[in-house]
Design a protein around this nucleic acid. Structure first.
Lengths: 279, 279
DNA sequence: CTGGGGCCTGCCCCAAGGGGAGGGTCAAGG
DNA sequence: CCTTGACCCTCCCCTTGGGGCAGGCCCCAG
């Protein structure tokens, strides 16, 4: 019977008296005995183990509510959950690291010339497409699925840059706005009807000729989400310089009705970031 | 004059309306115009840059109060501060990563045998020592300084394990309790008086013979702070199994008057974690 | 003239405690 | 027996960065 007061238990567990009272209140770590008269809390030495485990989990910034659940698991299961949670933290950390380097580069002016805006004329094209409402992550999955389907179908190609697969963001794609997004594959005009019959799950339509502004983003752009706003900004600045704001230029993915196209090289991960405007 | 309402500015800056109102209130990002009658906020497009910068800094979890200061800097200085802050985050992340792996290993029982408790008899020794009240970080600095001084003094050695440099934590060393901590170097009994005269800044005393329990912690233990509590726990468990709790065994660094000794190999970073008890 | 969206302020809420007020309890020393 | 100091209690307000909701105003289109 070598129970101790909250002060000593605090020192031994390296948890503050404050925290111990909170954990008691939350039912996370109740004292072994509470004096009825004074309300004094008393703890047993073997409660230190639980206390120290809580302290360790808190040091990893795990919320108390989650800790309550974790404490019901056996050691092996707990270890698994902690490891799994940590993998998530690592991932987020890597994301943030990329964000920092992008931000620092941008502040140091190293990215200004990375996003040179160019203009190109795109002829009228017949395309096979899917158009769907999607969340940001689903947008890429939709693209992957679309590309995989195309490979199986072994379609005839249109020559040159105009033959590349591309995506059109018809509206903002974010947490609370879901596009739609359309993935397109140009096809030779002559084969339009045959392909429409062969691939009934895809739409066939005509993409009108237009002139578009674009920036080249290089390989793996899709993995560097922090670069997209910069490309967006570059195009936005260009549009303002060119005073195109009121001539039907669609400048922002976050504006509804916008047409932002991403031009892809189907074999690889290269992509452009293009803003279409119609003359 | 293409100003916009708070809703559109929110979508374009990817900051919530809520956040924008808060930033206005805090003076971080004031709207360019507030309608006197209705209180409606209006923003100019060129405020988007600042807004997006704030959003980027917030994504790095920089507090708003700090952001206010950062926004007054020019781009290069800001980049430097962001990079510096990030280095701190990286460091903390590494610390936490070690903590996780230690915790997971412990939960999986991989560390149980790492801390096998052994017992050894230590003869009476004459030692040169410094004893001082220190904070946790100062404790190691004190040790380094002590070891450096010893090297310069070229002292005669005592043979064997009993000749190693060691430290005694006479009391808890933490944020609000500061030891004291004593660093000791055994010397041959015959030279006691000569050395006392030669090194007047050091104390000379006799460390009585005793039997002590200890665990071996291997190299670089001082860099793995998360291992110390485990060693402590191993000794604590051992003491309870051996029913030594009431026979004068000092079991906890957080208990005042305790004697926890750390045994060092002076050339390298290896150290034991020893708990002395007197028979 | 009515509906629907956009916008306003003001109030309460979250996590995980920190700080302090005001007051009770307990052991030792004078 | 009294006091002193250490310890402990509950209760309330404070923090950060907003989220949610209520009640009400503004403004435009049909």
């Amino acid at each position: 019977m070598d129970e101790m007061g909250i002060g000593e238990f605090s020192r031994r567990s390296r948890l503050s008296v404050r925290a111990l009272r909170l954990y008691d209140e939350m039912g996370l770590l109740a004292p072994s005995r509470v004096e009825p008269g004074s309300g004094y809390r008393h703890y047993e030495p073997d409660q230190l183990e639980r206390a120290r485990l809580i302290a360790a989990l808190r040091r990893l910034e795990i919320p108390l509510a989650d800790i309550a659940g974790l404490l019901e698991l056996d050691a092996a299961a707990l270890a698994g959950r902690v490891a799994a949670r940590w993998r998530g933290v690592e991932e987020e950390h890597v994301t943030r690291r990329r964000l920092v380097s992008a931000l620092v580069d941008e502040l140091n002016g190293k990215r200004e010339d990375m996003y040179e805006v160019k203009v190109r004329d795109v002829p009228e094209r017949h395309v096979l497409s899917v158009k769907r409402h999607v969340t940001p992550t689903e947008a890429w999955d939709l693209g992957k699925e679309f590309l995989a389907g195309l490979r199986d179908a072994a379609l005839p190609r249109v020559e040159g840059e105009a033959g590349e697969v591309f995506a059109i963001y018809w509206g903002e794609v974010s947490e609370d706005s879901d596009g739609p997004v359309e993935w397109c594959r140009p096809i030779p005009e002559a084969e339009t009807e045959a392909l429409a019959a062969r691939l009934p799950e895809l739409t066939v339509r005509v993409e009108p000729a237009h002139r578009e502004a674009y920036v080249e983003m290089g390989p793996y752009a899709n993995q560097r989400a922090e670069d997209w706003p910069l490309a967006d900004q570059a195009l936005r600045d260009w549009a303002r310089r060119e005073r195109l704001g009121e001539r039907g230029l669609a400048i922002a993915p976050e504006e509804l009705g916008v047409r932002v196209t991403y031009a892809f090289t189907p074999g690889g991960p290269d992509c452009d970031f293009a803003v279409a405007y119609l003359e």
